[in-house]
Design a protein around this nucleic acid. Structure first.
Length: 423
RNA sequence: CGGGGUGUAGUAUAUCGGUAGUACGUCUGCUUUGGGAGCAGAUAGGCCGAGUUCGAUUCUCGGCACCCCGACCA
């Protein structure tokens, strides 16, 4: 898109009271706006990143056999009474309407999904399957903090799986570990994200979290480098400070943020709603469940925390709002601006996502802003590059600058895999 | 929810019990055009409420908001 059309602007300074790196950078760069503590608007650039993350997760969930649905946030009190959580969950938002009817604003969706699938599950032949959604969750955090990492309203992918027995559920659960690892790999935080043993609640021995190392996190984990996994603080003692897999005691303590988790629910929610099926013998059995969550905003914020530098945001190609930032230094020179426009058009035709800085600003300002926005590849077009009949390409992450032939950008930019199209 | 801190223009800040100043932004004009440029002019502000006082943005109390530490976080 043309940057002159973008209604948001960048700022030189972050709001004085923001401390979190993700909040400072995302607000300065115009990716998000804070409406109130823990409640954010995603602006055009930020939303593009969020959608990229969403699509990566969607692909992986679909590959894992998940079927996408979309459940409501407004959930009747009765469902929450059924599981007992109306009274026990302190961070539940409760709203009442003008008729006095009470609802919960969903902090999670077991209370909706279980009654839902109950309508469709009656036989062992109906199992297994899994359903997932992307939906805003509402949790009345007593203390929202760390910018976008801990909000009161936030986008989450939650998947629920339904099985006839524990063995089937466990097999799926194990599979999801790999699926999750791939998601975090793809969004660019694979190297610093660890499968982490966590306490499992009332039924299972463990649940598993995916924890990304960053000082911005609020958790402490103990990493076994040999097994490339970690255990969290809750169960470090229970494990005698040893790796649950190899028993090794060489654990490395790190501060981390939980970007996802998977949980064996077993019959915790199927039982209260009496979600059951008939087995081969015609006997009623309770459905066994698993659930699998990823906080999208938290993933986005974590990417910023892990990769952002002193100049601003640094996006991996996979989630960047645009693939190429075309910095047009024509400064009124018609020949240069025509060249930039042609390049922009051609890149777009080649399905490269490009942000064209077509504004009439000084070079320094454009560069500083481009660094702040953090698009992986910057292509500079100016009198200089035109004279040399080349393009200047700067890699945001490394700062590496080089002059390339015009045709080469179509190869580098990851849009046209069919190079011939670009000529 | 306990403790601490902060509320001054769109943003960042200064000063002061008596006319609220600066920078950035924005608008106008000119200059400039490879790292948030310059000159001239313009725009715009004391979180809310009560109290003390001749007079409160400043002092006191209450509220609200935001940030930080802690507790909490299927």
């Amino acid at each position: 898109m043309r940057q002159s059309q973008l209604f948001t602007k960048t700022r030189k300074e972050a709001p004085a009271d923001e401390v979190a790196k993700n909040a400072k950078l995302l607000i300065r760069a115009g990716f998000v706006d804070k409406l109130q503590a823990g409640v954010y608007t995603y602006l055009p650039l930020g939303l593009r990143v969020l959608k990229k993350i969403e699509n990566i997760i969607r692909e992986e969930m679909d590959n894992a056999g998940g079927q996408e649905i979309f459940m409501p946030s407004l959930q009747p009190k009765e469902n929450w009474l059924a599981t007992g959580r109306w009274d026990t969950m302190d961070d539940l938002y409760k709203v009442s309407d003008t008729s006095g009817r009470e609802n919960a604003l969903g902090p999670t969706h077991e209370e909706v999904v279980v009654p839902l699938v109950k309508q469709f599950v009656s036989s062992y032949r109906d199992l297994p399957f899994s359903a997932y959604q992307f939906q805003n969750k509402f949790r009345m955090e007593l203390r929202a903090k760390s910018g976008i990492l801990r909000g009161r309203e936030f986008m989450m992918k939650d998947m629920y799986s339904f099985h006839r027995d524990e063995a089937d559920m466990t097999a799926y659960y194990e599979k999801m570990k790999g699926v999750y690892a791939r998601v975090f790999e793809r969004v660019g935080i694979g190297a610093t994200t660890f499968l982490t043993f966590a306490s499992g609640g009332s039924f299972s021995k463990y649940s598993h979290e995916f924890q990304t190392i960053t000082p911005a996190g609020e958790d402490t984990i103990y990493i076994c480098d040999k097994c490339r996994l970690a255990i969290n603080k809750e169960i470090i003692e229970e494990q005698n400070s040893a790796c649950p897999q190899c028993g090794g005691k060489n654990l490395r303590e790190e501060t981390s943020v939980e970007v996802g988790n998977i949980f064996e629910l077993k019959t915790k929610y199927s039982a209260p709603f009496n979600l059951s099926y008939k087995d081969e013998a015609g006997k009623d059995q309770t459905v066994i469940m698993g659930c699998y969550g990823i906080g999208l905003g938290r993933v986005l914020g974590t990417v910023v925390e892990v990769l952002g530098d002193d100049k601003g945001l640094v996006w991996p190609e996979s989630v960047a709002p645009f693939g190429v930032h075309l910095v047009d230094l024509s400064g009124g020179n018609k020949e240069v601006s025509e060249y930039a426009k042609a390049l922009y058009t051609e890149l777009k035709a080649c399905s490269v996502e490009v942000l064209w800085d077509d504004r009439d600003l000084r070079a320094g300002e454009k560069f500083a802003e481009a660094d702040l926005i953090g698009i992986p590849l910057r292509v500079v077009v100016s009198k200089k590059t035109l004279e040399e009949n080349k393009l200047e390409v700067v890699t945001r992450r490394t700062g590496e600058t080089r002059m390339i032939e015009r045709a080469e950008i179509f190869k580098i930019a990851n849009g046209c895999f069919v190079v011939g199209l670009a000529g």
